[in-house]
Amino acid sequence: MASRRVEENRVAFQRYKEDVKRDGKPFYPYAMFHDTVMSLVVVCVIVGLAFVWHYTSLLGPSLAAKADPGTVSFVPRPDWYFYFLFYLLRIFKWPNSVILGTVGIPTILLILALAIPFIDLRRERRLLRRPIAIVAAVLVALSMGVLTYKGATAKEALGAELLADVPNWVKSEQLPPQALPGAKLFATSGCLNCHTYQGVGGSQLGAPNLSAEGSKNKGITFQIAHLKCPSCVNKGSPMPSFAAFGNANLRKLAIFLEASKGPH
């Protein structure tokens, strides 16, 4: 015995089919006309964007420098439609809740999306009579929009400007002179693309603030090992390896990190 709702659904769909058969219009040429116009608009927009990309700099360079795994400064930036995901990483801070941001929220959203037709079983389709659907749609659109915007405008740290900040760090952290080479390396090596230090740096990735990293007293050896292979030391860390810097440079960085006991 089919339930009453199933019965009603079937009747309504039957009625839809009869109505459309009687009063509907043939797909060709009516709907197909709309589809064709819209498709032409889409192709024109795509071609237009290609032209803008080629002839202006509005859409950014067509190629950055060649990939170099050994470089020290880089800006890890995904394509814009991942900004909202990347920005989640700033909200769910490393390391405790990062899994929520990287895997948890996207998975939950996907499962929710899959479940929508099985949760919302009413036949009502008029928007004004579906308040929950309206609120949900507005919230989702708003949060994705805001996250994308924030991801797009998140500050990118530039090595040269950051270098000018090093004297301030020396003052506020009371860094010893032997930490200075490491501080300069730290400012110019791309660390601050993901991390923050004394209020500078930090991009979309939400890696931890390192201003007081040294107060954990993990030791030089640990710091070097971590820089060589972050995920070997912190299981699951998304930080890239900096082994290509060489031992001497890594030691400088480690000394600087251990000397960073936080602002005084």
Partner: peptide, 10 residues
């Protein structure tokens, strides 16, 4: 390129 490489690493 650099953007591609490092975005993919992360």
């Amino acid at each position: 390129d650099q953007t591609a490489y490092w975005a993919t690493v992360v």
